[in-house]
């Protein structure tokens, strides 16, 4: 992990996070990817979204949040963030958003910049 953190070139690109079934429909789960904490959500339409896992407001666990098709609400103080962009709709700082999808083997694949 320390090697990964020290060399961004080595960690950029695609990461397979394992089976899609780890994330129940409508909920999120947190993953550590190359030293970053990332919350992956599985929307009710089946699509995936990924944002940074720590709320910029007071450090709340974003993966424990409540979602709909467009936003996630942090469980601590109900700040909301767009799942597509990470931008807050309630005046908090932004989360980072990451491209994520399920591959042909129903594995979650995340792309780090």
């Amino acid at each position: 992990m320390s090697a990964g953190l020290s060399n961004a070139g080595q960690v950029a690109g695609l990461h397979v996070l394992g089976p899609l079934d780890q994330v129940p429909v409508g909920e999120g789960r947190a993953f550590g990817v190359a030293g970053e904490q990332i919350a992956v959500f599985r929307l009710r339409d089946g699509s995936l979204r990924a944002v940074s896992a720590v709320c910029p407001h007071k450090g709340g666990p974003i993966a424990d949040g409540t979602i709909d098709q467009s936003v996630v609400m942090c469980p601590l103080h109900q700040h909301a963030f767009e799942l597509d962009t990470g931008c807050s709709t309630t005046g908090a700082g932004p989360l980072r958003s990451y491209p994520v999808f399920a591959d042909g083997n129903r594995n979650i694949v995340l792309r780090l910049p």
Partner: peptide, 20 residues
Amino acid sequence: FTPGQFRTSLPLEVLPQVPV
């Protein structure tokens, strides 16, 4: 009731690490 119902969301150290 759901997979990972009691899986941690914080902090990083105990998250499942994806090998690089």
